[in-house]
């Protein structure tokens, strides 16, 4: 897969404050790229630069092979933004809002109408085509906010925390539509500080903090960066040294110790759990409970940035 977006050494300052600091990353075509970072990390600022909503001090950005500075208008026509803050005309209906923004991308007449209706259906707002934005619930406004960003079928969809403050139903609807958008061929940059979402839908993830890139890669790659070990904890009574030695000698097992429970450190891709259980059962050890503590993005994030996500 080719790179659809390439950001290279991007620096953006507000006066003396550097909001984005020498940031580089690539987004591959047709992937959902997660942009993860605590509040104030510079996520929105980066996205605004890509969407040409604010200038930048240094760096190179290209979208779909077009340079942002030199071919601004082409780049703009490729992008649809779902901004972090809801951006709608309160007194216009759902249809009128979407239609206005879509018409700015050259859609008109029947093509416009069908694109608008499709976008509204996409986010599950087909029933409120005529409802004014101001009369909608927060979750519905969020979904309308998305519809306004995608109706013109952009190749690159940039979503800045699209699920902040939405009800579970709307969140589910939004997740579904993002998956559908990717199936339809869009490339998506997805920003969030909500871990499970990012884990759920992103192919690759960049973790940024203080305007800098802390790490990037697939979820698995990120997890490995911090540790490649997971711990299997088994609830059982104290066992013989003999059994412990047997487990230690199993391939891939790194460490075994007993502290009230049996704790076994193994690589992330360990496949011998059944062998261990078999050994315990064969020796008449009653097993009460078993759990694996794999590192997750949450702990990875903490390790990489020293911060908890909000």
């Amino acid at each position: 897969m080719d790179n659809f977006v390439s950001v290279s050494k991007l620096t953006k300052r507000y006066g003396d404050f550097t909001a984005v600091d020498n940031l580089s990353f690539e987004v591959k075509e047709r992937e959902v790229f997660g942009f993860l970072g605590p509040n104030g990390a510079g996520k929105s600022t980066t996205l605004h630069v890509i969407c040409n909503l604010t200038g930048f001090d240094k760096g190179e950005i290209s979208v779909g092979g077009h340079d942002l500075r030199r071919e601004t208008r082409i780049v703009k026509s490729l992008i649809g933004l779902v901004p972090q803050e809801i951006a709608l005309y309160p007194t216009l209906s759902a249809y009128e809002n979407v239609a206005f923004f879509a018409s700015l991308y050259g859609l008109s007449g029947r093509a416009l109408k069908s694109a608008v209706l499709e976008a509204l259906e996409f986010v599950g707002l087909s029933d409120c085509v005529k409802k004014r934005a101001e009369k909608m619930s927060g979750g519905m406004q969020r979904r309308l906010n998305i519809a306004c960003g995608i109706a013109h079928k952009p190749k690159l969809i940039v979503m800045d925390e699209p699920t902040v403050g939405v009800d579970p139903q709307s969140r589910e609807q939004i997740m579904r539509s993002i998956r559908k958008l990717r199936e339809n061929g869009a490339t998506i940059i997805y920003t969030s500080h909500y871990m499970p979402e990012v884990q759920e839908i992103c192919d690759r993830i960049a973790i940024i903090d203080g305007g800098r890139l802390a790490a990037s890669g697939t979820e698995e790659e990120l997890l490995k960066m911090v540790t490649d070990v997971k711990t299997i904890t088994i609830d059982c009574p104290k066992i013989d040294e003999k059994i412990i030695n047997f487990i230690v000698d199993l391939p891939d097992v790194k460490r075994v110790k007993y502290q009230e429970k049996l704790k076994i450190e193994v690589p992330l891709r360990f496949t011998g759990i059944s062998t261990i259980l078999q050994a315990l059962v064969d020796n008449g050890v009653p097993v009460d409970n078993l759990k694996t503590d794999a590192p997750n993005l949450e702990t990875t994030f903490l390790a990489l940035t020293g911060k908890e996500l909000r």
Partner: peptide, 14 residues
């Protein structure tokens, strides 16, 4: 205030 200014301005229209 509505945030629609940025949204309008990021379109390819001059």
């Amino acid at each position: 205030k509505n945030g629609t200014l940025s949204r309008t301005a990021m379109s390819p229209k001059s």
